[in-house]
Design a binder for these strands. Structure first.
Length: 424
RNA sequence: GUGAGUGUAGCUCAAUUGGUUAGAGCACCGGACUGUGGCUCCGGUGGUUGAGGGUUCAAGUCCCUUCACUCACCCCA
């Protein structure tokens, strides 16, 4: 399938390793895991304050009962649905979700139609503590994964809205303006101006806006234009909290141009990117205070969160060589020396497996040479052999594949030996 | 979804203006080494040239269709 791929053991091991790191950080911050179905009713996925124009990228079809359904496009909308449905959930609710999402996009480097995302969101909190926690998680994950040069850019939709209002840009085209701004790195300031022109923003308005944006290198620069702007106070608060959480200043920054394209953001927004490889953002997120309400009118429920693009992270890590493939988890290969000693051989496997050691019995009576080659190729650290000599002497032979050394041990020492390699 | 490029062995790549039976390295399999992997040496298997159709005496090479990948646009993780 276009934009989708099979994942063989080697890549699965890599994926599993990365997921484990991410999961542990989520848990470290007290988040609980949930899952939601791959399919959602179309009416939940579409409409105002959801994905905006991206709606056309949602896989949509009729189920056998003729109902309009769609594959989930992200976890934020399903989360809002969950919050609107289960009203007895204790707030603030901190949940994480690691599953696949589907987007009918044209596939490119680091861009797929089916991919894993890892989301962590906090529902029910208006406080910037929630933002700070999410950004801190974001920071911890990227540094634990081994990224050296990444930047978490932070902005606020409230600021952008206020700026648009200040420049008298109508609300109904503001999202288009945001999307144009977001592209500044690629198309330059003139490019942004052209886009604004395309969306019928008059010369004087777009000039005014771009001038402000250009002048605004840091958050304090905004105070001249926007007085008592809540969005500015929020960002300052987030920065203060981040310093308490010891998130290094070099890894995050305020960026007035970073705007995000999704419709549902209402407050602080963030995006994580690396310089190399050229792959777009690896993680993103923001506040979506009105989304739950969209499912249940009157049910006011502020929320904020981050989303990590696992698939893209894996591509980037591969490119930067941050992700050596872990060796197989199998610790011991029990070789089949010859079928007449199968009883002793299988019993050994049984016993060491019961010690909690991942043990593979070679699956057919091939030549011993072949079996050693197999162990070598799969990087299984130990091979156990039980042949005529061993049976005669009531012992078993262990070969350490890394050192090449082997020794015979008494059968009665099997469990002791097994336990000795448990921690290795 | 629109436009452009690429597609040759499991992988990385060769193959003259269209011209014999499509090659090499690595990988794989076998042997040297019949109770032992890596290293070395020797030998071997491996291809509907992405797929389908067309032009031609002759197609990996030219044309059309389709699929996959890459790039740009759109947009995003």
């Amino acid at each position: 399938m276009r934009g989708m791929h099979d994942r063989l053991p080697e890549e699965m091991r890599r994926l599993e390793k990365v997921i484990l790191i991410i999961k542990n950080v989520f848990k470290k911050y007290g988040f609980e895991q949930i899952e939601t179905p791959a399919l959602e009713y179309w009416e939940f996925l579409s409409g105002k304050d959801r994905y905006g124009e991206e709606e056309k990228l949602i896989y949509r079809f009729k189920d056998r009962g003729g109902r309009e359904v769609g594959l989930r496009y992200d976890f934020t909308v399903p989360l809002a649905r969950v919050m609107a449905t289960y009203t007895d959930i204790t707030l603030p609710f901190k949940r994480f979700q690691i599953q696949q999402v589907w987007r009918g996009d044209s596939p490119q480097y680091g861009r797929f139609r089916e991919f894993y995302q890892c989301d962590a969101d906090i529902v029910g909190s208006n406080s910037m503590i929630a933002e700070a926690e999410c950004i801190s998680i974001n920071y911890e994950i990227f540094s634990l994964l081994g990224f050296k040069e990444f930047k978490i850019r932070i902005n606020n939709r409230k600021i952008l809205q206020s700026l648009c209002n200040y420049c008298q840009i109508e609300p109904d085209i503001q999202l288009q303006v945001f999307r144009a701004m977001d592209k500044v790195e690629r198309i330059g300031i003139d490019g942004v101006a052209e886009k604004l022109e395309l969306h019928n923003v008059p010369v004087e308005k777009r000039k005014k806006l771009i001038d402000i944006l250009q002048d605004c290198k840091q958050i304090s620069d905004l105070k001249k234009v926007l007085k008592n702007e809540p969005g500015v106070t929020e960002i300052i608060e987030i920065f203060r909290l981040l310093s308490y959480l010891n998130v290094p200043q070099k890894d995050y920054c305020f960026d007035i141009w970073m705007a995000r394209g999704l419709d549902y953001y209402t407050g602080p927004i963030f995006e994580t990117a690396v310089k190399k490889p050229k792959i777009g953002s690896l993680a993103s997120g923001g506040r979506f205070d009105k989304l739950v309400e969209a499912f249940k009118p009157g049910h006011i429920m502020p929320a904020t969160g981050i989303s990590i693009g696992l698939e893209r992270v894996l591509v980037a890590m591969k490119e930067l060589d941050l992700c050596p493939t872990p060796d197989t988890y199998v610790k011991v290969l029990v070789a089949i020396f010859d079928p007449s000693h199968i009883e002793q051989t299988m019993q050994i496997a049984y016993k060491i497996r019961n010690c909690g050691i991942q043990t593979e019995v070679y699956a057919q009576p091939d030549k011993i040479n072949t079996q050693f080659k197999y162990a070598d190729k799969r990087k299984i650290p130990f091979v156990i052999i039980v042949g005529p000599d061993e049976v005669k002497n009531k012992c078993f032979t262990i070969k350490n594949m890394a050192t090449g050394k082997q020794q015979a041990k008494k059968m009665s020492d099997l469990i002791i030996w097994a336990k000795s390699i448990l921690d290795k």
